[in-house]
């Protein structure tokens, strides 16, 4: 198209887009002072996404361009979303996937506590059977000789 004269985005559109970008910048600063709770990040990202879309469509000419450029950019953007989502699916839910039994974590902990209490209730000397139950002796079952030394 170069010799036909290239496609020119009218100056008025460029100025309007610029005006919209400034207004949206003011808006994103403004909503930062409003307590939005869990919506804070989505709202900020939404406004930034809108601004980026305006820049891409008009300043970067994608609205009027060969569609293959838009396709390239869209595919790249999809990969960014995949990158963020899949990573957060791991990092945001770490520790929750280890428990695959029907019991809840609290039930397992309560059971372990009860087992510990039963263990504590038994006098520690009453159940010595194996040599390993005598932690201070490292030479097996020769108790008499050890006591003598």
């Amino acid at each position: 198209m170069a010799h036909d004269g290239p496609h020119i985005v009218p100056k008025s559109i460029l100025l309007k887009v610029f005006g919209a970008l400034i207004v949206l910048t003011g808006l994103t600063v403004g909503v930062a002072y409003v307590p939005l709770g869990p919506l804070t990040v989505p709202v900020a990202l939404g406004i930034a996404g809108l601004k980026a879309t305006l820049v891409v469509l008009f300043f970067m000419h994608l609205k009027y361009d060969n569609p293959v450029n838009a396709l390239t950019f869209t595919i790249g953007t999809i990969f960014v979303v995949v990158f963020v989502t899949i990573t957060l699916l791991d990092t945001a839910f770490r520790g929750d996937l280890g428990n695959v039994t029907a019991q809840t974590v609290q039930e397992i902990q309560a059971e372990q506590e009860r087992a510990q209490q039963r263990q504590d209730a038994i006098p520690s000397d009453s159940l010595r059977i194996a040599p390993s139950d005598y932690p201070n002796q490292d030479r097996g079952a020769s108790m008499e000789s050890d006591e003598g030394s």
């Binding site: 910048t25 994103t28 600063v29 930062a32 804070t40 990040v41 900020a44 990202l45 406004i47 930034a48 601004k51 980026a52 820049v55 891409v56 300043f59 970067m60």
Partner: peptide, 20 residues
């Protein structure tokens, strides 16, 4: 095109780092 992309990166950096 390059310059607009640099602008877009900042459009995301500004709210994420400074505002929220």
């Amino acid at each position: 095109l390059y310059w607009h992309l640099v602008d877009i990166v900042w459009i995301f950096l500004f709210p994420l780092l400074y505002l929220i």
